[in-house]
Design a protein around this nucleic acid. Structure first.
Lengths: 158, 158
DNA sequence: ATACTTGCAAAGCCTTTGCAGATCT
DNA sequence: AGATCTGCAAAGGCTTTGCAAGTAT
């Protein structure tokens, strides 16, 4: 598990190797990504300290697209409203739990064995075993409780 | 593993219990969902035989939202372009492999043990163990090959 | 008759693109 | 100078909502 600093350095180095300019804004974006535990949205990045006010949302968008092309970041599905991005550090297994209701995301710690089992199953279907991340979609605690407090419209309450 | 017919019957019964009218269009939509092996988009449903021409896309949309409320279907993340839906049959473990590049989806067969391990890990973070489905995001065979044929822009080719 | 469904049209919202000016090598 | 970035504005594309008409109980 690399530290945020190590992840940041890794990202910066990929930028230079890829001959992408390492501008102040890009540094800030990468820094924010490196210190985020879970995938973040375009808006969260735009509002992040160091980015906010220094950079237009479009720039953040285009920068992330570039990063994605270079495999520096990857998109993580969530509520299909907004895109969530996270650093794509090699060797880091970042798996997430994503709530179907509120879209919140938390890190999912999977045992090595489990990871290998999943990779093996995926490989059976031709999916690259090296380029994977797992997302478990469910309903988080908060939403479960919320659903108890505010039950479905009576007619739907099975 | 229930047959499409069984899944269809299950869905219809939930509709009646929830006091939702079982209209011809809804039957067709449920039938299409029951016979689909993988999550389908709004458009695919609208174009499906039995639905196409008999029903407006908005109706399909609203019907699916209702089904979602009643937990008859669930959304499966994919390319964040379009929403994909699949039946939410209890007891059926539907896990999917989703390609980050093209958005294609295939069924992922996971060993029981693996499923339990994942559920246990998720429960640690408070995610309901009963309301989960797993999505493994990776790069499918076709896209891997495509990437070899059409490499990244020279400057990005690390 | 009453409540639920449907179609058509319009509004929303995030994503994506165009273009000209600013910036870095 | 030459190629990259950036900002502002506008266009796109799927999702969502309004409202009046159609349909089932």
């Amino acid at each position: 598990m690399k530290t945020p600093e190590e992840q940041f350095i890794w990202a910066i180095s990929v930028c230079s190797v890829a001959q992408m300019r390492v501008t102040p804004v890009r540094r800030e974006i990468l820094n924010f990504l490196a210190t985020s535990r879970v995938p973040v949205t375009l808006e969260m990045i735009s509002q992040a300290e160091g980015v906010r006010g220094h950079c237009d949302a479009t720039t953040v968008y285009r920068t992330l697209m570039l990063f994605k092309e270079a495999d520096i970041v990857r998109l993580v599905g969530s509520s299909r409203k907004e895109s969530h991005f996270c650093l794509n550090v090699p060797g880091e297994n970042n798996h997430f739990l994503i709530c179907r209701e509120c879209g919140c995301t938390v890190l999912l710690r999977l045992p090595e064995i489990t990871v290998r089992e999943i990779a093996a199953a995926a490989a059976t279907s031709g999916f690259s075993p090296s380029k994977q991340d797992y997302e478990v979609h469910g309903v988080c605690n908060d939403c479960q409780e919320a659903r108890l407090r505010e039950p479905l419209p009576s007619k739907l309450a099975v």
